Computed example of a mutant assay.
Amino acid sequence: MSLARVSTASGEEFAGRTLPVRPELRAVLPWPGLRRGATIALRGSTSLLFAILASATAEGSWAAVVGLPGLSVLAAAEAGVAVERMALVPRPGTQLGEVVAALTDGLDLVAFAGTTMISTAQTRKLAARVRQRGTVLLPLGPWPSADVELRCANGRWYGVGAGDGHLRYREVEVHATGRGAAARPRSVRMLMPDPGGPVALATGTGNARKDQHSPATLPISRATG
């Protein structure tokens, strides 16, 4: 893999340009895709991260995920991520900020866990760096200068009955807050995964009522989401 994607272009060259994103997520974004140079904090589910990465990597963009040693490449592939264009840095050690900064020089999307390890000064430098490089920064946790924060809540799995069946799909609420164009809160109900694919909108009174089995309310895990 080459890290030579980025030219010496200024941030103005990337203004208004976006990377593709799944249609189901456009309802909670203030842009028609993932705006280059933006910081989008993700909280509550690794499935949300996969949904964000899927369309961009499938259409040729390169991504990195830093600080998630338990990440399942198989789960990413099943969610539609082009894993051959996803670099993994499971354990960046104490140099998390430096590793993330280096990756923004060569990749289109950089996601990382361990946000509390990044100092305020590094936060400001990273924000300026991604704007200049046109990278989409995806902190997996609280990030004070995020343009948008997407948070999964109230996850419910369906398919398990009274001692029988298996988990088939999960309904979650995705809430968005942010600043500027994203200042108005938005939310959408989604199925991640959906019985027929990785992601779908939850419609009407909920696809779950069509299932004969009862819902199972389980905690949403950042590691396994």
Rank of each mutant, 00 (worst) to 15 (best):
L103M: 01
R43M: 08
V89K: 06
L96Q: 05
I52T: 15
R26N: 02
M117R: 08
R36M: 10
L74E: 15
S47K: 00
G60P: 12
A77E: 15
R43Y: 00
P90I: 08
R22T: 15
A15Q: 15
V21Q: 01
T57K: 05
V81C: 05
V65R: 02
A113F: 05
D108M: 11
V110D: 01
A102S: 15
L42I: 06
M86H: 07
T94H: 13
A54T: 07
P69D: 10
E78I: 06
A87C: 06
S72H: 08
V28R: 02
P90G: 11
E98G: 00
V99K: 02
V21I: 09
A56K: 08
M86P: 13
I118G: 08
I118H: 03
E24P: 01
I40S: 10
E78A: 13
T94Y: 12
L74A: 13
P69S: 13
T18I: 09
W62A: 13
T120L: 01
A41H: 12
G60A: 11
P30R: 00
R17I: 14
A63F: 05
A82K: 13
A82N: 15
L49W: 12
R17F: 09
E98H: 07
G97V: 00
L53Q: 10
L107E: 04
T120W: 01
A54C: 11
V66W: 11
M117D: 06
S47T: 07
L96C: 13
A58H: 14
W31R: 01
A75R: 13
L103G: 03
A76W: 00
L71N: 00
I52K: 02
T116H: 13
T104F: 01
